[in-house]
Simulated assay, not measured.
Amino acid sequence: MRPEQESEQMNERLGRIEEKLDRLEQAQQKHKQSPGTRFLIGVGIGFVIILVLLMTIGVLQFVSVSNT
């Protein structure tokens, strides 16, 4: 092959790779959540964890009182 043809093929390949990367970047940006949404999800998860711990402590206290 001539060097010109090789460089043309490389440019075409690079162009296709760039297009694929652009499409992947756009798809990833669509799925990003706003910081406010992430904060609310974090608060909700923290609330659930604290609620489960409090319920566990309550059950343990109830069991220990009923055994005495």
Score class of each variant (00 low, 15 high):
residue 42 G to E: 12
residue 8 E to I: 06
residue 9 Q to T: 14
residue 54 L to Y: 03
residue 26 Q to D: 08
residue 58 G to Q: 00
residue 43 V to Y: 02
residue 21 L to Q: 07
residue 47 F to T: 14
residue 48 V to N: 07
residue 9 Q to R: 04
residue 19 E to Q: 09
residue 35 P to K: 01
residue 43 V to Q: 07
residue 11 N to L: 15
residue 57 I to D: 00
residue 12 E to L: 11
residue 11 N to Y: 06
residue 31 H to W: 07
residue 9 Q to C: 05
residue 60 L to G: 05
residue 61 Q to S: 09
residue 41 I to V: 12
residue 22 D to R: 10
residue 65 V to H: 08
residue 45 I to Q: 04
residue 54 L to N: 10
residue 27 A to I: 07
residue 31 H to F: 07
residue 58 G to D: 09
residue 46 G to P: 00
residue 35 P to M: 01
residue 63 V to L: 08
residue 20 K to S: 15
residue 49 I to A: 10
residue 16 R to E: 09
residue 36 G to E: 13
residue 21 L to R: 09
residue 55 M to I: 10
residue 22 D to Y: 01
residue 35 P to N: 01
residue 16 R to M: 13
residue 8 E to N: 09
residue 13 R to H: 08
residue 36 G to R: 06
residue 19 E to S: 11
residue 10 M to Q: 11
residue 11 N to M: 13
residue 16 R to Q: 14
residue 63 V to H: 01
residue 31 H to P: 00
residue 45 I to P: 02
residue 62 F to H: 10
residue 33 Q to H: 08
residue 41 I to F: 06
residue 35 P to S: 08
residue 66 S to R: 13
residue 15 G to A: 12
residue 18 E to R: 13
residue 6 E to M: 13
residue 43 V to R: 03
residue 22 D to E: 13
residue 33 Q to G: 00
residue 45 I to E: 13
residue 21 L to M: 10
residue 30 K to C: 02
residue 2 R to H: 11
residue 12 E to N: 10
residue 52 V to E: 02
residue 10 M to C: 04
residue 23 R to Q: 05
residue 57 I to K: 06
residue 22 D to P: 00
residue 5 Q to I: 12
residue 18 E to I: 03
residue 23 R to A: 13
